[in-house]
Amino acid sequence: MRDEPAEISCELVARILDEHWGFRAAEVVFAPVGFGSQHWIASQEDGPRWFVTADQGGGRAVGNAMRTAKELADRAYEFVVAPLPARDGRLVQEGLPGWVFAVLPYLHGWSTPDGPWEDAAERVQIARVLGRLHAAPAPESLQRWDFAIPNRDELMVAFEELDQPWSGGPYAEPARLRLAGAREYVHSRLAQYDVLVREVEAFDDPWVVTHGEAHSANVVRTADGMRLVDWGTARLAPRERDLTGIHDGSADVLAAYQSAAGPVSPRAAALELFNAWWPLGEIASYVQLFRRPHVESEDSKESWRELTVYLPG
């Protein structure tokens, strides 16, 4: 997120680190990275650094995802960046009402600002990593993915209210007009998605451990190799949930994936399903956001930019 939450100061983050983890931070700075969670970088003088995350709501889901990452890391899947346990052994703590915090090791490396895998050699590397992940036994805490498109019901309500102005904030009316112009497009994509769901549900291939957002921006390149961060969306799901971002028909990518996952290949219908699921979920989420009260901010600007990417003008 680009906008620092008013209710969480750097001083509060330092107190939470001290109280729950026993980490004495000499400095805490807000990190305007990612989208969804809030982040800070905490450090000691000439000592360790930590990456702190906070999520509003969904504490149980966040806890399950963190336990999944920790179990995978404990099984020597070195590409998994897992949270550090607090003093009481828990991986997440409620730092203030409605907010849960987790602390991860700070990685020295680099990532990309956007998600697409543009480098062919890196695409092969991440295919091998995902192959190992998909071959892993499922952790007990891993939740099962479902086919529902987030905020779909709210999107249907928005369609019913296109004939009256929206007044949630500066992007409310632009969002209404954009959605009105793309009404047929979105309805046809939803209908196509529902057909694909019925087809993929009939497959008998076992579901696997998936990261959910294994794009380039969620991979830190370190001296010791690729490290996958942001495990909040980890779910038991069809393998294509992760493969849509790397599958390009390349024999090298498929061979790298199969070297760890075994003799399995992505299925066209499942690839198509996940290629439809993501933009539909983004459209529904951003429409819901702009129908609610909002203000002009860096986050709302970025949300509007994303909506215009997924929703034809």
Rank of each mutant, 00 (worst) to 15 (best):
D204Y: 00
D205F: 11
V195A: 15
H215L: 01
D205T: 15
E201H: 12
T210W: 01
D204G: 03
T222W: 09
D205M: 13
H211M: 03
S216Y: 01
H211D: 04
V219A: 06
N218M: 01
A202S: 15
A223Q: 15
D205Q: 15
H211R: 03
A223R: 15
N218W: 00
W207Q: 09
A217Y: 02
V209R: 03
D224H: 10
V208Q: 06
V209M: 10
P206G: 06
L196S: 02
V195H: 12
G212Q: 01
H211I: 02
V195I: 14
D205E: 15
T222E: 11
V219F: 04
N218T: 02
W207S: 06
R221G: 05
A202D: 15
D204P: 01
V209A: 04
V197Y: 02
E213T: 07
V219N: 02
A223I: 08
R221H: 14
V220H: 09
P206K: 13
N218I: 01
T222Q: 10
A214Q: 02
S216G: 06
P206T: 07
G225K: 14
N218G: 05
G212N: 00
G225N: 10
R198K: 15
V219H: 05
H215Y: 06
D194V: 06
T222D: 11
T222C: 10
G212R: 02
V195C: 11
V209F: 04
F203H: 12
P206M: 06
A202P: 06
D224W: 10
V195D: 14
M226L: 15
V195Q: 13
A202G: 13
A217P: 02
A223W: 09
F203I: 08
H211S: 03
P206C: 08
P206W: 09
V209K: 04
F203K: 07
A202V: 12
V200M: 01
H215P: 00
V200S: 01
V209Q: 03
V197H: 03
E213V: 08
D204N: 08
P206Q: 08
E199V: 11
W207V: 08
G225F: 12
H211Q: 06
D194K: 05
R221P: 03
R198Y: 07
